[in-house]
């Protein structure tokens, strides 16, 4: 994967530094914490901890100046999300996530009612950033857990990684979906066209995964994802079948309906339950992780639906890449 095109001063400085042209790294002041520039800069720095970029020195993952800049980018992002979600009790948040509200207003509702193929392709494109590394951010929390929470989380991760079979890994199933949909399944292929609201959802889990101090939030994040996927995957299956979409596209979502019905139970009772039995002081962080996930998912949903309602693409410069 090549480095993406910068979207402002911060992302320009980051991509230049990774490309070997290190100037003074800019201060992070008065920047929109949800804006394109900060979000891409943070995304690129996080990627050093996953698979990196072609031609970029692997040692830069632990470069003190870049880590300092990363911390300076994380602070306003985390502070903004914290301020927006407020505080709540874990049980109440989980209870709320388990209720299915009708009429629903999210992307999967739109797709089921009046989704055209290009809408689906855009959703696949946004989601390719995460689903091609599905479950990776959550693996970072494993050494930070113990006992019941650890055993249960590892079992869910094992399932995400295909239960030992490469062809069943969820990231592989998504790659198959992309190929069948006529899109590229190359890792981060669409980074340049995916806008901040979608990148931010991945930044959130990378941030939670990379900081031991945010392990409670990571667990909350994982649980929120597993709780809400089931119903939306059901809608995706019915929307895709309506369009007679390729089998591989449907398969990704049918797998998630069945898997996440299990994962939801395990996450709620064993992982959250086990963690809070072990470390009850993390309850606030778990609730924060649950709510932060919903906040950024809603923001992405609003962005995508807003664009579609205006009759335009929800991607950046979509025309060039999607052909």
């Amino acid at each position: 994967m090549h480095l993406p095109a910068p979207r402002g001063e911060l992302s320009a400085a980051v991509t230049a530094a990774l490309g070997g042209h290190r100037g003074a790294l800019p201060p992070v002041r008065g920047v929109d914490p949800h804006g394109e520039d900060l979000t891409l800069a943070l995304h690129v720095l996080y990627e050093l901890h996953y698979r990196g970029f072609d031609g970029v020195d692997e040692g830069l993952e632990w470069d003190p100046d870049l880590l300092r800049l990363r911390a300076a980018l994380e602070r306003p992002f985390l502070a903004a999300v914290r301020e927006e979600v407020g505080t709540a009790e874990v049980a109440a948040v989980v209870e709320d996530l388990l209720v299915e509200r009708l009429p629903g207003s999210g992307v999967s509702h739109f797709l089921r009612e009046r989704g055209e193929w290009w809408h689906f392709q855009e959703v696949f494109t946004h989601r390719s950033i995460y689903h091609l590394k599905e479950a990776d951010p959550h693996a970072w929390v494993i050494p930070r857990l113990r006992g019941r929470a650890k055993a249960a989380l590892v079992a869910v991760e094992f399932d995400e990684y295909g239960g030992g079979r490469a062809e069943r890994m969820h990231s592989r199933l998504f790659a198959d979906l992309l190929d069948a949909a006529g899109l590229s399944s190359e890792y981060l292929h669409y980074l340049d066209v995916v806008p901040a609201p979608a990148l931010a959802t991945v930044n959130l889990m990378s941030m939670f995964g990379l900081h031991r101090s945010l392990r409670g939030a990571l667990v909350g994040h994982f649980a929120a994802t597993e709780i809400t996927t089931g119903p939306s995957a059901r809608r995706m299956v019915s929307a895709l079948r309506k369009l007679s979409a390729p089998r591989e596209c449907v398969r990704f979502y049918t797998e998630h309906i069945e898997a996440d019905a299990v994962h939801e139970q395990v996450l709620r009772h064993e992982v959250i339950g086990g963690l809070l039995e072990d470390e009850p002081h993390l309850a606030g962080d778990v609730a924060f992780g649950l709510m932060a996930t919903e906040l950024l998912e809603d923001r992405l949903s609003n962005h995508v639906l807003g664009a579609w309602q205006d009759g335009v693409s929800s991607l950046r410069e979509a025309a060039d890449v999607l052909v």
Partner: peptide, 29 residues
């Protein structure tokens, strides 16, 4: 072949006898 299997007991599941979370409360708003 999963490590845990979620079984449907409400009979609403479209993938019966497995659970597809159709048992959840639906609130009309």
């Amino acid at each position: 072949e999963r490590f845990v299997t979620a079984v449907c007991t409400c009979r609403r599941s479209k993938i019966y006898p497995l659970c597809d979370t159709s048992h959840r409360e639906v609130r009309r708003e």
